[in-house]
Design a protein around this nucleic acid. Sequence first.
DNA 1: GTACGTGCAAATTGTTTGCACTATC
DNA 2: GATAGTGCAAACAATTTGCACGTAC
Lengths: 147, 147
Amino acid sequence: MEKFVQIKEKLSNAGLKATHPRMVVFNELMNSKDHPSAEHIHDRIKTDYPSISLGSVYRILDVLVDVKLVQRVSVRSGYKRYDANMEPHGHIYCLKTDAIQDFYDSELYDLINDFFRKKKLKNFKVKEIKLQVVGEKVDPEVDVTII
Amino acid sequence: MEKFVQIKEKLSNAGLKATHPRMVVFNELMNSKDHPSAEHIHDRIKTDYPSISLGSVYRILDVLVDVKLVQRVSVRSGYKRYDANMEPHGHIYCLKTDAIQDFYDSELYDLINDFFRKKKLKNFKVKEIKLQVVGEKVDPEVDVTII
DNA sequence: GTACGTGCAAATTGTTTGCACTATC
DNA sequence: GATAGTGCAAACAATTTGCACGTAC
């Protein structure tokens, strides 16, 4: 699996065995920008790797989340969705299509971080600040863009 | 059910029949500040109203969300949680205890709203902006406070 | 009285787990 | 070769649904 060299390294660095199923799942998630669920990922990879089981996909996603190579995105939908992008960013969630799109804006992130640097939360250790913009795409086929 | 007069009115105004189960569920949620799940609510009200079924609690919460008397809060947990507070506010989520606490700060909300007034999202109609502060309580027994 | 809501139980959906086997280190 | 990971199927948990009965308007 020559094409998985970087992925292999990431897994090893995280202290995980670089197994074939893990590389395939992680690779698929890194190449997806639509924040798929475990079932989505399973569907997509089983063409190339038919023997992979859904249970393993669930287990693999759990360990990837544990070692912080991947994060979960929580939205209204009744299932968990995943994101291999670990840079600080927000999510745009479309109620109509259930689509989740990444949203970057360092200016806004600075604003929010500055805020939490001034106002402190007592009795709480902040790990992460999640920002979700909920609404509806006008044209469901097209991505949202920022002007 | 004299104590439910205001609730009765809210339901009627929303175009819903003011049934006993609906009033009991809505009342319970309004008196909870811990963002309970359907099962939590069912457990809490069945002392006073033993005949109520869990299925009905689910259905009632769904219609209350539909008419915007109640909102869903999405966090990591594997179940849906509800909030009868419809004022704009954020949520503090504790990874250790699974507790959700409301978080008000008009200054921060102004900041974020100003931001989205300037930078527009193309092809997207924003309905709501959700802010979630994820982390861990130091003392799990005590609420988080803002300084 | 009628249309909508409810209780109950069964069905569905998403996720987790136990166990025998396999592959990585 | 030891240990941790996988496939498979069964178990579980949260939520939804069909249907006969009940209740608000």
